[in-house]
Amino acid sequence: MTGGKVVIYVILNMLMIFLLFTAFFAVFTKNLLNSIITLAIFSAILIVIFVILQAPDAALAEAVIGAGLTLTFFVITINKTKDWQNE
């Protein structure tokens, strides 16, 4: 492998490890708002992985839906439901 490929390979594997960390944090944290923000970070890392794997279509869909729309919907839903801070 040439130098550029090694760099891409290392970055890809580091991003996958971060993906694992964010996924575990989003599942196991007690605060719902933290979980939602972590899911957005998860989506952002996944976008970079999709671009490295040469899937720009999936990256666009993930960027718009995963990082933008679901975050908005989840935040508004949590804001509308009561007593989420006391748990």
């Binding site: 720009p56 279509d57 990256a59 666009l60 869909a61 718009v64 839906i65 933008g68 729309l69």
Partner: peptide, 14 residues
């Protein structure tokens, strides 16, 4: 190019 109706529609909905 990459994209399509679904992604563009979501951006318009933003």
């Amino acid at each position: 190019s990459p994209g399509g109706g679904f992604v563009g529609g979501v951006i318009l909905a933003m």
